[in-house]
Amino acid sequence: MIPNEIAPVGQLWQAIRREAEGVLANDPVFGAALSSAILDQPDFGGALSHQIGARLGKTPADRARFAELARDAVRCSPDLIDAASRDLQSIAIHDPATMMLLPPLLNFKGYVALQTWRVSNWLWRQSRNDLALLLQSLSADQLQISIHPAASIGTSVFLDHATGIIIGAFAVIGDEVTILQNVTIGRKHSEPDRAPKIGRGVLLSAGSTILGNVTVGDFAKIGAGAVVEHNVPPGCTAVGVPARLTNCPEASVPA
């Protein structure tokens, strides 16, 4: 359990290890898997890389190869670890279903898919596009989450109940965004170079679709099943098909 604030990565890792040691003491049957995933790892980056390999690889050789790829990425780009730390702690702080760090790290496929995207995005920025797209494909196959490597995603992001999430190329997603299952964020065929921009603290509810050159303002909420093709001002709620605005702050309501 962590306090209601973002801790440094080193402190996070110690908290994860303490949780793992407590689980091992209470449930020795879980010990072998827990040791390889956490207790045998040198640091948070090692544990995270192990999880990416374990989730994406179908064979031991594949799992080792993808884990090593993730290790290379976090060694070359330490900001990936900082982002992964913020994502994980945000789940423990804000998700009422868990107040611990270990369960989302080991069992929340949305968390692993997001960190897989961070590695693929790093590869994309290194012009290793084919390998980046391979990771996207594997994430779609194994985790049912497809995030294009050319998307842009902030930190403290939570993919909750993460199944059927699609985030297209060039989409921009801000910090502290929560995305539920079966959400699509993508371009229109008539605007192939324009993708949605999702502001800070936005909630995208289950089954919602955001399409085209639209902006969803900070702390807006998109209702379940809504189809958004026009801008949503900050703080507003958009519901329905096509989406209409409701519960807007007074400043967002036209005169």
Rank of each mutant, 00 (worst) to 15 (best):
10 G>C: 04
123 L>K: 07
3 P>Q: 00
227 V>W: 05
165 I>Y: 04
223 G>E: 06
7 A>E: 13
193 D>L: 08
251 A>G: 10
227 V>H: 15
251 A>F: 11
215 T>G: 01
12 L>M: 09
2 I>T: 02
154 G>K: 06
253 V>H: 11
169 A>V: 03
67 A>K: 13
166 I>M: 02
173 I>L: 02
37 A>L: 10
18 R>K: 13
144 Q>V: 12
103 P>M: 04
116 T>K: 01
29 V>I: 12
220 A>P: 05
221 K>D: 01
88 L>F: 14
216 V>Q: 04
186 G>L: 00
249 P>C: 03
137 S>C: 12
83 A>G: 06
204 L>H: 03
161 H>F: 00
146 S>D: 15
98 T>S: 07
174 G>Y: 01
100 M>R: 13
220 A>V: 13
199 G>K: 11
88 L>V: 06
6 I>E: 10
56 L>Q: 07
172 V>R: 08
9 V>Q: 06
122 W>N: 08
127 S>M: 10
64 A>P: 15
240 G>R: 02
159 L>G: 00
112 V>A: 09
57 G>Q: 10
16 I>Q: 05
117 W>L: 07
157 V>S: 02
34 L>M: 14
196 P>A: 05
25 A>E: 14
224 A>N: 02
42 P>T: 03
189 H>Y: 09
168 G>E: 00
12 L>R: 13
147 I>E: 01
70 A>W: 05
156 S>I: 06
91 I>F: 08
244 R>M: 03
161 H>N: 00
13 W>E: 10
19 E>G: 03
132 A>M: 06
175 D>K: 02
104 P>Y: 05
228 V>K: 10
223 G>F: 08
96 P>F: 08
81 I>T: 15
174 G>H: 12
53 G>D: 10
179 I>T: 02
179 I>F: 07
16 I>E: 09
165 I>M: 00
46 G>Q: 09
227 V>F: 04
202 V>N: 03
12 L>F: 06
93 I>N: 00
104 P>K: 09
136 Q>Y: 08
45 G>P: 13
140 A>V: 15
236 C>T: 11
252 S>N: 01
182 N>G: 00
71 R>L: 15
70 A>P: 15
78 P>H: 05
234 P>K: 11
139 S>Y: 11
